[in-house]
Design a protein around this nucleic acid. Structure first.
Lengths: 126, 126
DNA sequence: ATTCGTATTGACAATCATTATCATTAGGGA
DNA sequence: TCCCTAATGATAATGATTGTCAATACGAAT
């Protein structure tokens, strides 16, 4: 049975407040900075659980880190992510949607899904 | 100036013979098994160089490992991957390249990199 | 062919993110 | 409140990748 702990809730609300993608390490650091005594391992466990229950989204940064974000479940969209500060902007990708579907069909692939994310340095971090 | 060494050539030919994606660790293990005295760090360096010179391409496995494969076509491109059998096809994505660069610029982002991969079921697995 | 400057190598240490361990703590049903 | 056990947190372990640095060897110049 799943138990509700303040730690899990802390991770959940921290993700919701933030809105952007963030790594487990950074999230833990911020929680500690706010005075929380939560452990690093617990942050990892909470994030994994949130992803399992579809309350959060996960993606890999090019550097190999796992990034998490509260799941907005507002349909399909993509992201423009600053690899320095983690700032995220949602981007329109209508052209890419149709391109992906078309390419998949041309190669005989069915049930296409795609990963399309752009990483860069935002204005502040440039 | 770039020098030609048997180590670099060993990595290059090992990748060509294989055709599939392989991790740096596995590639090193196989080379050693064949009697090579090549070092692990050198395998990493060779693979990085091959990617830089577009002779090989790299992608991240869901587990976070970097996988490398000899690149048949020239230049930057993306992949269409069967999530059932792992079969991979290279795809051209000229439209996506310019789209990614443009979107990044519009939002004030610099040094854009992007992840664009399409997953589906190939003909056999459909 | 020999010399020589330096790019490259390889053994190993260092990083970094993530996971496992395990004694202790604390949900939550009875 | 009691009790069982899931959850926690400090820390060790893991595993991939990168850094270090003395020794080596490519290749241009002699």
């Amino acid at each position: 049975m799943k138990r509700n702990t303040w730690q899990r809730e802390a991770v959940r609300s921290a993700l919701n407040e933030r809105g952007d993608f963030i790594s487990a390490q950074k999230l833990h650091t911020e929680l500690k900075a706010e005075g929380s005594t939560i452990g690093l391992a617990t942050v990892y466990r909470a994030l994994t659980d949130l992803v399992t229950s579809d309350e959060a989204d996960a993606l890999q940064s090019p550097e190999g880190e796992n990034l998490y974000r509260a799941c907005s479940s507002e349909g399909h969209h993509h992201h423009l992510i600053c690899r320095q500060c983690g700032h995220t902007e949602e981007i329109e990708a209508e052209a890419v949607e149709s391109w992906a579907a078309q390419v998949a069909a041309e190669h005989g692939f069915t049930q296409p899904r795609h990963i399309v994310d752009v990483f860069g340095l935002c204005q502040k971090c440039s």
